[in-house]
Design a protein around this nucleic acid. Structure first.
Lengths: 350, 350
DNA sequence: CTGAAAGCGCTTACAG
DNA sequence: CTGAAAGCGCTTACAG
């Protein structure tokens, strides 16, 4: 399909007057080469605009030099910073990034040992059996926000969900005297949600507030689902003076439901989220939430995977700290509007 | 590195009692195979859990079956839907997606003929010379939101920026009687921004409003940059009754700057954005903007690239329609019952 | 420090 | 409908 035949290692070798083995050595810095030879080869490469064929290298070396990323789907403000972290870290290490969503493929064909050296697997994107099979084959795997089955030692990267949630609820109780606090659960099997709920429960307990199941509903980490859930609770007359929406997306739906029902936020009902995604600060009132270091999760995942790829031991669990972000929706005052919004870090140019 | 040797096509052939050529044929559906033979091969594949090595296929067939995506960086709410569209369309067509950001690599090494069949190139991510070189080699390329140099026939996918902007400004002028409308430009070389500015100018002209360069500033399609730009205009005493922020990110910064300066939005100053990214509806007041079909842009780009890959002619230009999204920041009433009611207001005098 | 040669696991004419 | 064989473009012991 290409107009001209791209140069191969043989073309370079001929032009430089050496063997292809020597060219390969300078390409891979795999052995010292005489200075003049080196210079000739470098020149030949430059003149021909030679780029090694990935496929040939992979076939011969049995390493793909690419990391696979498996996701359930591409959505939510959560995903962007994570991808940024993964891509940056992979690129820095000289690895390519192959992305695939599990959308409708029941089995994991498009990503595997045949086109990646290792895999990053996000919550809910791969069947546990397939995971076990891959792992037993010795294929390097790192999990994101989802624990492996007990018997498998697969590294996992996740965040301090419980501690974050506890800080948040403690704040509502201690600073704003809320005691009738609802919790909106995420998707059923979602570990983040379960840990957040534990933090919520612990905070209640620590303050002697009885747990009331009527104040638990399914928000699904989803704006519309949360909207419906809150409407339902309100209609049922569940007594509330605060809602922990589970995550920021759900918090947006919660705010909408409350506004529509004429409840004042935060005066009547305080609202808090989790994650601190980009739009959290733009909500009205500005959302009090917990900052999840999402980009770092991505970086850490690649980091651990690289260790595995290099035959080094990896951390079984990487638990990244979360941080309370106080804005207005909890009942606190607005901070100075002088402060510009915070932005994710942009790597410096070299 | 793997515990067991993964099965190869030879293992399958032996088990099925056929040659590797025949196995290859059923793998690729490249010739009809006798039913019993087919069955035996299928069985062998299943029993062995055989998956063809991508590298070997690529090397032998000279097709990578993957699409490369080159971006300047991973950021902004704009990027997510575009990626979703690209990934979905590629997956559907059986292509892998290899992502790379141009961050610090001055030249395009990590993505090219050696590991992709074709490339999707987003604005600002590749030097024009490299682009020309790739194209002249006959490498399939599709551009996103950025025109090729005149002499190169590279398909481009973009949106109706000018028409969208014109609708927006027409609305401000005709419905809300605004005449002192500022425009915040995007990054210098950004085509989207230039076309939006043309739409802005045409709308002014059509209503006999003189163009005033004092009302043009650099918002950079960036929240903080827009914030600073608006503050500056306000300090300089530039007369304004509306601001077209260039895009939604900049609109967020604009709202912040106006709020901080105590200007009422939309009463004193109307604000409109462009793109309709996810947070636009969450801003206060809810943002009137133009919906850019971003996910579709991604899909269309893959679609055109696939045509190229299949040797079919591709559309030189795909121009996707935009659509006005009226919310509240222009001065209109809230449309949906979801939002709180507002009293009608009488526009300020000019 | 360098080369000859085997081999990585497929696809694809070419025969039959 | 099927097989034998060449070839894709590299890497990597093995010699020297």
């Amino acid at each position: 399909m290409l107009n001209h035949q791209a140069p191969t290692i043989l073309d370079v070798a001929r032009r430089a007057g050496v063997s292809i083995a020597t060219v390969s050595r300078v390409l891979n810095r795999t052995a010292t080469v005489a200075p003049q030879t080196l210079a000739k080869i470098r020149a030949a490469i430059a003149e021909l605009g030679y780029v090694p064929r990935t496929a040939a290298r992979v076939l011969a070396s049995r390493k793909t030099n690419t990391i696979g990323l498996l996701l359930p789907e591409i959505s939510g403000s959560f995903f962007l910073p994570m991808l940024r972290g993964i891509e940056a870290e992979a690129r820095q290490a000289g690895y390519g990034l192959l992305i695939h969503t599990a959308q409708d493929s029941p089995s994991l064909q498009p990503l595997g040992e045949h086109n990646a050296d290792g895999l990053l697997i996000f919550t809910d994107s791969l069947d546990k059996n397939e995971l076990a099979t891959l792992h037993r084959r010795g294929f390097p795997l790192v999990l994101l926000h989802d624990s492996p089955p007990d018997d498998l030692l697969i590294p996992i990267i996740t965040i301090e969900n419980k501690a974050g949630a506890k800080m948040l609820i403690d704040h509502l109780i201690e600073v704003h005297q809320r005691r009738r606090i609802a919790y909106l659960q995420g998707p059923p099997a979602h570990e983040d949600s379960r840990w957040r709920q534990r933090g919520y429960c612990e905070a209640l307990k620590a303050h002697g507030i009885p747990f009331d199941p009527a104040r638990i509903a399914r928000g699904g980490f989803d704006e519309d689902e949360a909207y419906m859930a809150v409407r339902r609770m309100l209609q049922q007359g569940v007594g509330l003076d605060a809602i922990f929406a589970g995550d920021d997306e759900a918090a947006a739906g919660t705010l909408r439901a409350l506004k529509q029902s004429g409840r004042g936020v935060p005066d009547e009902v305080a609202v808090v989220g989790f994650d601190d995604v980009s739009f959290a600060q733009h909500l009205t009132p500005a959302l009090t939430t917990v900052r999840a270091p999402i980009e770092q999760v991505g970086r850490a995942a690649v980091h651990q995977l690289l260790r595995l790829l290099h035959g080094q031991p990896a951390e079984r669990l990487t638990l990244l700290p979360t941080e309370l972000v106080i804005r207005e929706s909890c009942g606190c005052h607005a901070q100075s509007p002088m402060a510009p919004a915070r932005h994710p870090h942009i790597p410096e140019e070299v």
